[in-house]
Design a protein around this nucleic acid. Structure first.
Lengths: 225, 225
DNA sequence: AATCACATTAAAGCAGCCTTAAACCCCGCT
DNA sequence: AGCGGGGTTTAAGGCTGCTTTAATGTGATT
């Protein structure tokens, strides 16, 4: 899951970012409204944490512009604890949830995960696609025969993203954007290597190649071509 | 075991806290309803002792809010001895047990331990998981061969928490939160050291490492995959 | 056939974990 | 107070296993 953290307080960012990463998110950051608006518009995020008190451009304005541009990723707004009018404005502008500062990181994580799950239409931490059962908490997958496969961090992130977006062609670029934080992987074949690993674990049929396009995880095994 | 003690009478807290710690609990305290509600919601406790006569926010309200938020930790309510209606209200609001003031500390401890055991589905002070038998009273463990292992305090707490939460990945962070009172152990490797001790005692297979995630105590030995 | 895109494999690089030893601390004892 | 011992914590280096690179193989496309 790739998220955008928009916050100008660098101390807070330094505290939050590692914990978000720990929780399995790939985190990009923006420190002012201009950057935030640009990043959110130009890149693909699964969720956004947006502080309203920003230099450059007000957070609310950023949010409004995103929504006007047709972007529908879930946005969690950070407000001062007692500024209830900000919350109302935020929700009107298209925020999906809000949290008053100061807050506990655990709550932020919980709300964030709830948002992402809601977005992808999954109520639980388990995900069933293509005959596989993926357990978010234990970071492992059970196959059709009931065999459990403990996965490494990257294997797990990649497979999860593919299961969340089954039956869609996913370019290597899109995949690496959602599995990594840095993006300069143009001249790397990591994704190919990890696709190969997953195939070794779950069978070659499991993931199809669309030459020149990307990869697909069919939700039910395909016959023929 | 980490518990939250909610009590505004500081004399009573001063008396209780050491005894609870003596009994092997890590104790956090709150002195009014606001703090209590917040702490209970945001942090993980294995049990709560809740006095109803609180400043800030009534104890019952605190309890109700916790339950509405989906928290299910056992709560032991302290009431005035003769205020039976408070008990009824307490139980309705989701309390698991109650105790009239004044009381004997021994009784509080006994009820508390009963609650914690019940929560984790154990009726006795003995805990059998993963081929080990842990004796809460004697603070020792018997292995499959019937060999008795006297454990030190920390070893014991760590192993108990892992046995209570077998088959779940436990991060070093979660472990230290439940084994220690202070939490600033970010730059310490105590947990690694104690995991190592337990493995030396009970065999390496006993505890599995999920790199980057934490540790698991499988309830029955796993066969590789 | 030449080229391109992907597959496969081995090995280097690296981060996190394991292990050990020594320092520390608390308590009971002399 | 000084001492001793068990328990606890710190610190350092080695080690394992995940990640990434890079080199080579294979099949499609021109």
């Amino acid at each position: 899951m790739r998220i955008l953290l928009v916050e100008d307080d660098l101390r807070l960012v330094a505290e939050l970012k590692p914990q978000l990463q720990q929780a399995g998110f790939a985190v990009e950051t923006a420190h002012d409204g201009i950057d935030a608006e640009f990043l959110g518009r130009e890149e693909a995020f699964d969720a956004v944490i947006l502080d309203l008190g920003l230099p450059g451009k007000p957070g609310l304005e950023v949010l409004t512009e995103w929504r006007n541009a047709g972007l529908d990723m879930p946005v969690l707004v950070l407000t001062a604890r007692d500024a209830w009018h900000e919350r109302v404005d935020g929700l009107k502008a298209g925020a999906d949830d809000y949290l008053g500062k100061p807050f506990h990181v655990e709550e932020l994580l919980a709300r964030l995960e709830a948002l992402v799950r809601r977005q992808h239409g999954h109520a639980s931490s388990r995900l069933q696609v293509a005959g596989l059962v993926l357990d978010n908490d234990l970071q492992r997958v059970t196959d059709q025969q009931g065999v459990e496969h403990p996965l490494t961090g990257r294997e797990f992130r990649l497979l999860r993203y593919m299961m969340l977006n089954a039956d869609r062609v996913l370019s290597k670029n899109e995949l690496s954007e959602h599995v990594y934080e840095e993006e300069d992987l143009r001249d790397s074949n990591v994704i190919e290597v990890y696709i190969n690993r997953l195939r070794q674990r779950f069978g070659k049929r499991c993931i199809l190649t669309r030459r020149g396009q990307g990869y697909v995880l069919p939700s039910q095994p395909e016959h023929g071509s």
